[in-house]
Design a binder for these strands. Structure first.
Length: 275
DNA sequence: ATGGCTAATAGCATTAGA
C-alpha cells in the first residue's frame, strides 16, 4: 500500500497537476495540505472521478487539509488539534482508513521570528506532541504525514547557514521535531535514505528547482506498529518541474502487508534487516 | 539575505507563503 503527502498550494489552482499525479503515481492514501479553499469549493467531484473518496477541512484563502483514499472510506476521527478552542486555522485532519490511523497536518510556517506567528508555531507543535503521545500509546498502526515546516537537520537544507534564524530551522523548532520523534516515530524517508540529500520543496524564486536549492520539510512518520512494514520511500520530485506545479513535490511511502524490517535501534543507527 | 514567484481575494493591490 502506498501512502503519500502533498502540499498542493491551492487545490483548485493545481487541480490539473494533482489529477495527473494521482493517475501516474497511483497512491492509495493521500494527505493534502494548503487547499486554499473553503469546504464548499473542494473539488470532490473531480477527485471522486479519479477514484478517491475524501474528507477535508477547508478554509477561505489559506491552509486547508484533506485525506484521500482509494482503499476504503476514510472515517474521520478528528479535525483540529485539541488544546486550543480559539484556533480557527484548518491545519489538521485525522481518519481511520484501511486498518490504520492517518493524521494529516499542515504545521504553521512561523515566520517572522520572533513574533506572534512563531509563538503560534511553537504552541501548535506542543499541542501536536501532546496529541501524538496519546496516539502512539494506543499501539495501533499510525501514519502522521504532512508539511511540518521543519528541516530536521542540516542535511535537509540547501544552505544551512542561510536558514539559521528562520522559523523553519530554528533550534526551538528542530528541538520540537526531535522531541516528537523521541516518542518513537520513524521518519520514513530518512530511514530509507540515511545519507542522501533529499528535498521536498523548492521555492519559486531564482530558479531554485533547477539549481536543486531545496528543503526537506514534508515528512511521513510511522508508529512502532507500522515501521517494520516500511518497504520504500521517496519523493516524486519531477512533479515539481511540471507546468503550474506547487512549490512542493509529493512524498510517498510503500508499506508491505507484513513486516520487512527489524525494529529501529534505540541508538538511532540505520535500521537494517538481520542477515 | 531577501523575496526576483504564485495563489486567493478583492476588485487592478494586498496578504501569505518558506
Amino acid at each position: 500500500m502506498r501512502v503519500a503527502t502533498y502540499n498542493v498550494n491551492g487545490v483548485n489552482g493545481r487541480l490539473g497537476v494533482l489529477l495527473r499525479w494521482l493517475a501516474e503515481a497511483q497512491p492509495d492514501i493521500v494527505c493534502l495540505q494548503e487547499l486554499k479553499a473553503p469546504d464548499e469549493r473542494f473539488p470532490a467531484k473531480a477527485i471522486g472521478d479519479a477514484g478517491y473518496e475524501a474528507i477535508w477541512h477547508g478554509q477561505k484563502s489559506w491552509n486547508g487539509v484533506a485525506i484521500l483514499s482509494r482503499v476504503g472510506t476514510p472515517v474521520e476521527t478528528r479535525r483540529a488539534l485539541p488544546g486550543d478552542d480559539e484556533d480557527v486555522q484548518s491545519r489538521y485532519i485525522e481518519a481511520a482508513v484501511n486498518g490504520m490511523l492517518v493524521a494529516c497536518l499542515y504545521l504553521p510556517n512561523g515566520n517572522p521570528r520572533p513574533g506572534p506567528k512563531f509563538d503560534y508555531k511553537l504552541g501548535w507543535f506542543d499541542r501536536l506532541i501532546a496529541h501524538t503521545a496519546d496516539l502512539i500509546a494506543t499501539g495501533i498502526p499510525i501514519v502522521v504525514a504532512g508539511d511540518f515546516n521543519v528541516m530536521p537537520t542540516e542535511q535537509d537544507v540547501y544552505k544551512p547557514e542561510r536558514w539559521q534564524g528562520d522559523a523553519l530551522f530554528s533550534p526551538q523548532v528542530r528541538e520540537a521535531y526531535a522531541r516528537l520523534l523521541g516518542q518513537g516515530w520513524t521518519d520514513a524517508v530518512r530511514t530509507i535514505h540515511p545519507d542522501e540529500t533529499i528535498y521536498t520543496f523548492w521555492d519559486y524564486f531564482r530558479n531554485a528547482y533547477a539549481r536543486n536549492a531545496g528543503l526537506r520539510i514534508d515528512h511521513l512518520l510511522l508508529s512502532p506498529a507500522l515501521a517494520p512494514r516500511l518497504a520504500a520511500a521517496d519523493v516524486d520530485r519531477e512533479v515539481r518541474g511540471w507546468e503550474k506545479s506547487s512549490d512542493h513535490a509529493p512524498v510517498w511511502i510503500e508499506l508491505a502487508d507484513t513486516p520487512v524490517r527489524t525494529r529501529r535501534r534505540r541508538s538511532g543507527a540505520t535500521p537494517r534487516n538481520e542477515a
